[in-house]
Design a protein around this nucleic acid. Structure first.
Length: 284
DNA sequence: TTCAATCTTTGAGTCTCGAA
DNA sequence: TTCGAGACTCAAAGATTGAA
C-alpha cells in the first residue's frame, strides 16, 4: 500500500481532492486487497472512512488509471477462490466446486458484468440447486457472500432464463428443476455433461431482428440487403452485412430435406471498420 | 461535467413450511 | 400453536451509460 501510495500521489495534480492522504490510503488499500484476492466489502470501507458513496466511486475511477494491473486482474481466478471458500465452509464435495467453476467458465461472457461477489453467488447457487440442494441453501450461500438472495434470483432470471429464452421462471427455488434441465441442455451437468449441444443459444450470440433495422442500401430490385454497425470486442466497430437472396423466406420449409442448402438463402459477412488514422489493430 | 434514462442491487416486509 | 429459517416480492437506492 505504501509503495503504491508513494508512486501514485505525486502523479495526481496538486490541489485536487484525490491527493487527500487519508482517502487515498483507503482507496489504495481497497485496490491492493482486491488485487491479492482478499475479500473486501466496499460498504465496510466506506463506513470506516470519511468517504461518501459518490466520493468513493469518483476515487475508484481516478485511481484505477494508475493501477492497470487491477483493471487486468484475473477475475475468474479470484472468483474460483471464492467458490472454493464456499465449498469448504459448507463441507461440500469437490464435484460441487468443479461444477460451479465450470458454470462460471462456460457462462462467463454472459454473467461477468457485475461484482465478483454476485458472480460467485450466482454460480454457487446454480451449482447448489443442481447438485446438493439438500445440503446447502441458496440463502446461506448468499449470507456467506454478503449479498441478497433476491439479487441472485434476478441474475438467474435474466442471465439464464431470459438469455436462453426459456419460459416458465417463477422463482429461484421453484424453478430449480427447470434450471437443472437448462444446465443439462448446456452440457454443464447431468448425463449430457461435456457433450456439445445443438439448439441452445451459444455464448455471446446476438439476435438481430430485421424488422427493427433500417434499410440503407438496396440497388437490386429483388434482393434485400441489410447493413449493421455494432460494437465488437474492445468496442472495435464491426460492420455486418446480411443479403437475403432470391429464395423466399419460407419458414415452413422442412429443413430435414437434404436438397435444401441454407447457404443459398442467406449471405452473411462481418468486416472490421478501421479508423482512417492509426494502423489497423488486427486483420479483418 | 452534468443530467436523464436505464439497469442492477438492496432491504424490508410478508409468506411458507417444518420442527419443537 | 409457535418459532425460526428459508423463500418471495417489490419499491427504493445505487450504479452505469450515453448524450449534450
Amino acid at each position: 500500500v505504501l509503495s503504491k501510495f508513494t508512486e501514485i500521489r505525486p502523479k495526481l495534480r496538486s490541489g485536487t481532492k484525490h491527493r487527500n492522504v487519508k482517502k487515498l490510503i483507503a482507496i489504495i488499500t481497497y485496490f491492493c486487497l482486491k488485487f491479492r484476492n482478499v475479500p473486501v466489502n466496499q460498504h465496510d470501507l466506506i463506513g470506516a472512512s470519511d468517504f461518501t458513496r459518490k466520493e468513493f466511486n469518483d476515487f475508484m475511477l481516478r485511481i484505477q488509471q494508475y493501477l492497470p494491473e487491477y483493471v487486468d486482474r484475473n477475475r475468474q481466478y479470484y472468483i474460483a477462490q471464492r467458490i472454493f471458500e464456499i465449498t469448504e465452509h459448507f463441507n461440500l464435495e469437490m464435484p460441487y466446486y468443479f461444477l460451479a467453476k465450470k458454470v462460471m467458465n462456460e457462462l462467463w461472457d454472459g454473467i461477468k458484468n457485475t461484482t465478483d461477489n454476485v458472480v460467485t453467488g450466482l454460480v454457487c447457487s446454480i451449482s447448489a440447486l443442481c447438485s446438493c440442494r439438500d445440503k446447502v441453501s441458496v440463502n446461506s450461500i448468499c449470507k456467506r457472500l454478503g449479498i441478497r438472495m433476491s439479487t441472485v434470483q434476478v441474475q438467474v432470471r435474466k442471465k439464464i432464463f431470459d438469455r436462453f429464452r426459456v419460459k416458465g421462471f417463477v422463482s429461484l427455488i421453484k424453478s430449480s428443476d427447470l434450471l437443472i434441465k437448462i444446465m443439462e441442455k448446456l452440457g454443464l451437468s447431468g448425463e449430457h455433461e461435456g457433450e456439445p449441444q445443438e439448439g441452445v443459444a451459444t455464448i455471446g450470440r446476438v439476435e438481430i431482428i430485421l424488422g427493427s433495422a433500417s434499410e440503407v442500401f438496396n440497388s437490386h430490385d429483388n434482393v434485400d440487403y441489410y447493413y449493421f454497425v455494432v460494437k465488437g470486442e474492445g468496442k472495435a466497430p464491426l460492420v455486418m452485412t446480411l443479403k437475403i437472396n432470391n429464395l423466399p423466406l419460407n419458414f415452413e420449409i422442412d429443413w430435414r430435406q437434404e436438397d435444401i442448402q441454407v447457404g443459398k438463402l442467406l449471405n452473411f459477412e462481418v468486416y472490421r471498420n478501421f479508423a482512417l488514422k492509426d494502423p489497423p489493430l488486427v486483420d479483418a
